Amino acid sequence: MKCAKCGFLTSWKRIRCPVCGSCMAEFHVNKGTVLESWKLNVTPEGLEESYYINLVKVENGKILCKSKEHLTEGSSTIIEDNVCRSL
């Protein structure tokens, strides 16, 4: 999703931009480079017991996506439905 006004990017579906409140539009990003990867050991009820949240640099900014495995900093990744995996 991408904000039509300020350009904020996210891989999670949102109606309004959390930065400026404008409408979000569909924006499909499918490749990027991993900047950081964090393992979440305590997750919300109903989700996997643990997974990784990854900060990924894409063409027009940075987004967060989750993965089942640790993604190495600098590695290429593909993003599909808010989930990233190594290329």
Rank of each mutant, 00 (worst) to 15 (best):
D81G: 15
G7F: 01
P44W: 01
I78L: 11
E36K: 10
W12H: 14
R16Q: 13
E49S: 08
N41P: 09
D81I: 05
N82I: 11
N82Y: 11
S76D: 06
V19S: 15
L87A: 08
R14F: 05
V42N: 07
L87V: 07
V34R: 01
S50D: 06
K2Q: 05
D81L: 13
A25F: 05
L9K: 09
S76K: 03
K13F: 10
S67H: 02
K57N: 13
W12Q: 15
T43W: 02
S22C: 12
K66Y: 02
P18Q: 11
E59A: 10
I79Q: 08
I15N: 13
G21P: 11
C6L: 12
M24F: 07
K2G: 07
R85E: 03
R85Y: 01
N30I: 08
L55K: 13
F27H: 08
E80A: 15
H70Q: 05
L35S: 06
P44R: 14
K2D: 01
V56Y: 00
Y52V: 14
A4N: 08
L47M: 14
T10W: 03
L55C: 13
I53Q: 09
A4Y: 03
Y52S: 14
C65S: 12
S86M: 00
E36G: 05
N30W: 00
L9Y: 05
I53Y: 01
K57W: 03
A4Q: 12
W12R: 15
P44F: 04
L71M: 06
K57A: 13
G21Y: 04
S11W: 02
S11Q: 04
T43Q: 09
E73A: 02
C23S: 10
T33L: 00
L47N: 11
N41F: 03
C84M: 06
V34I: 02
L55A: 11
K62S: 13
G32I: 04
